[in-house]
Write a protein that binds this DNA or RNA. Structure first.
Length: 649
RNA sequence: GCCGAUGUAGCUCAGAGGUAGAGCGCUUCCUUGGUAAGGAAGAGGUCAUGGGUUCAAUUCCCAUCAUUGGCUCCA
């Protein structure tokens, strides 16, 4: 007998070799129906895998991350099975579960392609196999035998994967006629997979390297109930409604023109207004935090970037230099602002008493992004960073770093960004060639970030290989509506550029010292930030920020004069209002302006003229009753004040 | 950059080897209507661009450009 300990610390005895499913059944039938896999000590087991020793176990259901993972992983096998039977000889790469479903990378062979049109046929085959309730069977075999199996099969991808595995036994999973090299765990049988949809198809390099062959990746998602699938698909549909590219068009925030060039956003009046308001908000915040605004040109001598190291690193993959017509001097469109700011620092000798020097600029930069990378406003070739560089003494570094974190949090709070990831981006220890600077400087910089993060009590994920080439970063990542992560705020510690630009200050010892630099951008870029903000708010921007706060809707022409009076009154009170004078019925005007996401609609008719009031309607909420103009302006101003005050807390 | 898809009116989209359609928007007229779509008429398109096949191409083929789903990249 073995002793099984449950999450509530209760224990029970079972015969050796009992399976998770049997244990679940012994507890309750309904549990046995819901459970998908079982965590035995720290390893996730198939429900049908025997447990041979005392263990503490936890059942994983659909609601548990591990359960979902098992479910999707088995779904990937199910799909691969269907693919093998529809495309004999197809070679399989890897097929993991991911955040929102699963995929499988396959090589259909040189003379075959799989396209989106083929997905329904694959789904049909999957359905067929699922309904047969084929059990997933785990088998452990020696590595040698596994290698032989895949060599015979001619699947070089699996052979390659096997070769990288440690010697010893390898686990395989089989259901029906399909066998796959796999660590598991899996569901008891294919019948668990009741609802699924293959979503899209894409090319993906084998093992993620551009030098390798491109395989066909098929993405799918699956659920234990049809209803959950339907909900998921509906959610995806709804997410598309919030896409900043769609809303940006509807609300006339920005556009692109082929004639200007791809990846070069054109900010329309409403978008420019929104952006300017955000910029002013941050400028004010930065003033309060001891920053000074500077302005630098859009180009700089090529040598500047050779000095900074950017040219060596990115020169080849950038816009080509432009040059003066007679002397042939070469200039680059500036891809970042730091070298310019370093030169501003050098404008005069600095004393330790002057530090920190905090130079801020909404600096527009240009980078050649690969054509396949361009994406709405989130990935563009010309964009404006809310950049600043803090030049400080080494003893000020941590404090300055923490102050920047505070600014980022003020902004995220102001705009109700609650779901974000904090990431410490360090260098790839296996590839130090990619970075400039001494190990010693890197270690100091990395330590500073780790300490500051700890001091602020941030839960940060550490990612190696994500650092900038001159220093490590603390990045703030936020997801867009389609679940893609984008870096917004970033704080970077840099010992290297001060050295390369030979920056100094005079210390209290009257000696020359090297300052440390912090690069930071709380928004990241105005383009990307506005994109994400648009998606998070679905275009319903906070009242203080939104381009048009109020629209006046006269019921008939008879009250146009009064409507104009209301407009003037509001504008004089610094409320951004406009007026809808079309000869449409009030229902139509309400509908159109609701869709424009204008926060307040003021309906005025003869009744309002008589009483000198407006009938207030809040976007998305409906009728709020009537108010006189003073009441309404107070009401709006109070809301704005509340919004801005809650930010500062 | 790579693999795939898409490109038709300002927007969202339908369409077929015989030179184009809807809804919304726009203009004009009627209507002056009280809390999410009043009615009518009209204007508006070298069917992304360049080649090719064909008696005939917007439709089929190729290339380019752009957009797009991924991959790779991201100072």
């Amino acid at each position: 007998m073995i002793k099984i300990t449950f999450p509530d610390n209760s224990t029970r005895e079972y015969p050796k070799g009992i399976t998770g499913l049997e244990i679940a059944k012994s507890l309750s039938n309904s549990l046995a129906k819901e459970v998908l896999s079982v965590t035995v000590n720290d390893e996730v087991y198939d429900l049908t895998r025997p447990i041979n020793n005392d263990a503490s176990i936890k059942f994983n259901k659909w609601e548990d991350e591990e359960g979902m993972d098992t479910f999707w992983h088995s779904s990937a096998h199910l799909m691969a099975d269907a693919l093998e039977s529809l495309y004999p000889g197809i070679k399989l790469g890897i097929g993991p579960s991911i955040e929102n479903g699963f995929y499988y990378d396959v090589d259909p062979g040189d003379d075959r392609t799989i396209s989106e049109d083929d997905l329904p046929a694959i789904e049909k085959k999957m359905k067929e196999i699922a309904s047969q309730k084929k059990p997933y069977v785990r088998k452990e075999i020696p590595k040698k035998e596994a290698l032989d199996y895949y060599s015979d099969k001619g699947d070089e991808y699996k052979v390659e994967l096997l070769e990288d595995l440690e010697d010893g036994t390898i686990s395989f999973y089989t259901h029906g006629n399909f066998t796959d090299l796999c660590r598991g765990p899996h569901l008891p049988h294919t019948g668990y997979i009741k609802a699924f949809k293959l979503l899209n198809i894409a090319g993906a390099y084998w093992r993620g390297s551009e030098r390798n062959k491109q395989l066909t990746r098929i993405y799918g998602v699956s659920f234990p109930k049809q209803k959950l699938l339907e909900e998921h698909l509906l959610m995806l549909e709804k997410a598309k409604e919030r896409d900043h590219r769609k809303i940006g068009k509807e609300l006339e925030l920005f556009t692109f023109s082929q004639n200007v060039g791809s990846g070069l956003p054109l900010w329309l009046p409403k978008g420019a207004q929104l952006r300017e308001r955000l910029e002013n908000f941050l400028k004010q915040l930065q003033r309060e935090h001891g920053y000074e605004q500077v302005i630098t040109p859009h180009i700089g001598q090529k040598e500047l970037y050779i000095t900074s190291g950017h040219y060596a690193k990115y020169g080849e993959s950038s816009f080509k230099p432009i040059s003066t017509p007679t002397e042939g001097e070469e200039f680059l469109l500036k891809p970042m602002n730091c070298p310019h700011h370093c030169e501003i620092y050098k404008f005069k000798p600095r004393s330790y008493k002057d530090l920190p020097v905090r130079l801020a600029e909404f600096g527009t930069v240009y980078r050649y992004e690969q054509s396949g990378e361009l994406h709405g406003l989130t990935r563009v070739r010309g964009f404006t960073q809310d950049d600043a560089h803090i030049f400080c003494r080494p003893d000020q570094l941590k404090e300055e770093f923490i102050k920047v974190i505070d600014i980022i949090f003020i902004i995220f709070r102001a705009l109700a960004f609650k779901d974000f990831l904090v990431q410490i981006s360090l260098r790839d220890p296996g590839d130090k060639e990619k970075y400039i600077g001494s190990d010693e400087n890197w270690e100091k910089a990395e330590q500073a970030i780790v300490e500051a993060t700890k001091e602020k009590g941030l839960e940060a994920r550490v990612e190696y290989g994500e650092a900038a080439f001159y220093g490590p970063k603390l990045d703030f990542l936020v997801k867009d509506v389609l679940g893609r992560k984008w870096q917004l705020g970033t704080i970077q510690v840099d010992y290297n550029l001060p050295e390369r630009f030979d920056l100094e200050y005079t210390g209290s010892d009257n000696q020359k010292h090297r300052p440390v630099m912090i690069h930071r951008a709380p928004f990241g870029s105005m383009e990307r930030f506005v994109a994400i903000l648009t998606e998070h708010t679905a275009g319903k921007f906070p009242l203080w920020l939104t381009p048009d706060q109020v629209v006046i809707l006269p019921i008939s022409e008879k009250v146009h004069n009064y409507a104009e009076k209301v407009l003037n009154f509001l504008n004089n009170c610094d409320i951004r209002a406009l007026i809808d004078l079309r000869s449409e019925k009030i229902g139509k005007k309400i509908r159109d302006n609701e869709l424009k996401r204008i926060p307040y609609l003021l309906i005025v008719g003869e009744k309002e003229v008589e009483n000198n009031t407006v009938s207030v309607r809040k976007q998305g909420e409906g009728d709020k009753g009537s108010m006189n103009l003073e009441e309404f302006t107070n009401f709006v101003n109070k809301e704005i004040k509340n919004q801005l005050e809650s930010i500062k807390k």
